[in-house]
Amino acid sequence: MKTSDFYYDLPQELIAQDPLEDRSSSRLLVLDRKTGEMEHRVFRDITEYLRPGDCLVVNNTKVIPARLLGVKEDTGAGIEILLLKRKADNVWETLVKPGKKARPGARIVFGDGILKGEVLEVVDEGNRLIRFEYEGIFEEILDRLGQMPLPPYITHQLKDKNRYQTVYAEHDGSAAAPTAGLHFTPELLEEIQAKGVRLAHVTLHVGLGTFRPVKVEDVSQHHMHSEYYVVEEEQARLINDTRAAGGRVICVGTTSCRTLESAADEDGILRAGSGWTDIFIYPGYRFKIMDALITNFHLPESTLLMLVSAFADKEKIMKAYEEAVRQRYRFFSFGDAMFIK
């Protein structure tokens, strides 16, 4: 299977640059993965497709303001850092621009010196390990100095950084939002639960690898980035009980899907625990636990488009994307949604 098999033509103006004022007013394309039939709805209509006894699985990770702008201590040259993974208390793996200014030993100053960093070493893919020095609580300093690391295709400034968080975001750690969840409001979640639908929380900290292009033509040769996940005992029990009772497990976003598929055994029993997953789901994959998926529209030739194609059949997905382009849906992180049932 070739990467180019997942290409589609997207007019630039369909890439959503700003979130809608009302999260739940985005459009919703409903796709029946068995028949290929499509419906055009509004996201808040999702309640009509959920049944008592179903379980909606959300990813409660929280995006940290991981983009830091600083200067080199010796030259004053500007430097940009993106926090990727915490390696130890004060040591982070980072993406640095321009990298040539960040050799081991280089010192960087942020926010008039309330935060300083020293480059320790260069690691995989040119990333840098940086040890930070500060007084106080790192998260509070980051909240003051950091900016939301919006995807590269969004060029507008985000006025309210909470709009790049889900309303149920809880655990700090992501460099990108699990964007399928951005459509939910507290009121809509209440309505869903009042209908008898259970809500389960898992955590997967989304890395910037989610935006990395697939650079090989043979899909099976692509190496997936790894991300940290947590499934708590109570949540695993809730999901397993749903399946045992004949309810559907409906994932909100590809990150929830990857978490469940990583933590489930071959019999579709979800195991509580935590760890790193580099699961790569593409056509041919046999799903162990997910019955339906709420997701946004993904980039051409991306691993996320491959995942939804594995779930719903590539031909049906590509036809749905052609229809979404024809109907002028909004694409990517701040765009519209799909419900694949």
Rank of each mutant, 00 (worst) to 15 (best):
M1N: 12
K2H: 04
K2G: 06
K2C: 04
Y7E: 11
D9Q: 07
P11Y: 08
D18M: 13
P19W: 01
S24Q: 11
L29P: 01
L29F: 05
V30K: 07
L31C: 04
T35G: 07
G36W: 04
M38I: 07
H40Q: 11
H40R: 09
V42A: 05
I46C: 01
P52V: 05
P52A: 07
L56Y: 10
V58I: 14
R67T: 00
L68V: 10
L69V: 02
L69N: 01
G70H: 10
V71C: 08
E73D: 12
D74K: 11
G76K: 06
G76C: 01
G78H: 15
I79S: 12
I79L: 13
L83D: 05
W92P: 02
W92F: 12
P98I: 02
G99A: 09
R103N: 00
G105N: 07
R107A: 00
I108T: 00
D112W: 02
L115G: 03
E118K: 15
V119T: 02
V122A: 13
V122S: 12
R128D: 01
F132G: 00
E133K: 02
E135Y: 00
I137W: 00
I141R: 01
L145M: 06
Q147I: 02
M148D: 01
L150P: 10
P152M: 08
I154Y: 03
H156F: 14
N162I: 01
N162M: 10
V167G: 04
Y168W: 13
S174K: 03
A176N: 02
G181R: 03
G181W: 14
G181H: 11
T185Q: 04
P186A: 12
P186K: 14
L188Y: 11
L189N: 13
L189P: 13
K195N: 05
K195E: 05
H201C: 08
V202R: 00
V206K: 05
G209N: 07
R212D: 10
R212H: 13
P213R: 07
D218Q: 08
V219C: 09
M224G: 02
M224K: 04
Y228G: 09
V230R: 15
V231G: 04
I239G: 05
T242N: 08
A244V: 07
C251Y: 13
V252K: 10
T254L: 11
C257I: 15
T259D: 06
L260D: 10
A263N: 11
E266C: 00
I269Q: 11
I269N: 10
L270N: 14
L270A: 13
L270F: 14
D278K: 09
D278N: 11
I279Q: 03
F280M: 07
P283V: 03
G284R: 09
F287E: 06
N296V: 05
L299Q: 08
S302L: 08
L304Y: 07
M306D: 02
L307S: 04
A310V: 09
A310S: 12
F311A: 04
A312V: 11
D313Y: 14
K314N: 03
E315D: 13
K316H: 07
I317W: 14
K319E: 15
A320L: 09
E322N: 02
E323Q: 14
E323A: 15
V325A: 12
F334Q: 01
A337K: 08
A337R: 07
I340C: 01
K341N: 04
K341M: 02
